[in-house]
Simulated scan of single mutants.
Amino acid sequence: MLKVQEIRELIKLIDESTIDEFTYESNGTKVAMKKEVNNGVVETKQVVQPAQPVIQETVQPVQAPKAETAEQSEGKDENKTSEKPDTGGVDFDHEITSPMVGTFYRSPSPDSDTYVEVGSNVQASSVVCIVEAMKLFNEIEAEVSGEIVEILAEDGQLVEYGQPLFRVKTK
């Protein structure tokens, strides 16, 4: 079966391409994605395995950027301001986000040490937390090398798809 990261990469590739539909089947697992273009993009993926229910996830529509005239573009350069989110003074380069809706856990079990703390150095393949979804415990990897500078979710908290969990200062 495909890993969550592989499915995320497939979604990104399909979204950036001109392909409208994509189906992948391997060892009894089937992943189908369909992109509809009506004032935005909606992606749906289905993962089907023998004797298991269908899992469907819908990603929110993505707005296409509007074309600008030369005059609008010049006006923006003159009034250019920083549009970064308020980080509370924390310097970071990357946010590790939740790949799914679920419950956030900082350690593999209640009596174990946490995976990472503020100041911990991580590699791209380092596990930083677990997100439990439908009784499945999904290990979330850092995806970048660097230092954890902020932890944004509380242990046992419900997290949403795309919600920032950690801030990392990359090396």
Rank of each mutant, 00 (worst) to 15 (best):
E141G: 03
D20H: 15
A124M: 08
S109Y: 12
H94W: 15
T44V: 13
F22V: 02
R8P: 04
K169T: 03
P85S: 10
E143S: 07
P99E: 00
N138D: 08
F22R: 01
D86R: 00
G28R: 03
M1D: 05
G28E: 02
P65K: 09
S82G: 09
T18A: 12
V127H: 09
F137R: 13
V41H: 13
K84I: 10
K80V: 10
G40E: 06
F166A: 04
D111N: 11
M1E: 11
G88Y: 07
G88K: 01
V116P: 10
V127P: 01
V41G: 08
V47D: 00
R8Y: 14
V31N: 08
D20A: 12
P50C: 09
E43T: 06
Y24K: 15
L152V: 04
E141A: 07
G119L: 01
S125Y: 03
Y105Q: 08
Q63T: 14
V47T: 15
E139A: 03
G146L: 04
A32P: 00
D91L: 12
G88A: 09
K45P: 05
G146P: 06
V31S: 03
P50Y: 11
E132S: 08
E57I: 11
I55F: 15
P85V: 13
D155Y: 07
S125L: 04
I55M: 10
K80P: 01
T58W: 13
M134K: 09
K169L: 13
S145V: 06
K135M: 10
I130W: 02
F137W: 06
D15M: 10
G119D: 10
E25N: 10
K45L: 15
A124G: 02
S112H: 14
N27V: 08
I14W: 11
L158I: 09
V101L: 15
K66G: 11
E68P: 04
D155I: 05
F92A: 01
K45I: 12
K3W: 03
E143T: 11
I96F: 00
K3S: 12
K34I: 11
I96K: 02
L13R: 14
Y24W: 07
E139V: 02
E117H: 13
P53V: 00
C129A: 14
E143P: 05
V159L: 09
Q72T: 11
F22S: 00
G102H: 06
M1W: 13
S17A: 07
F22W: 15
F22D: 00
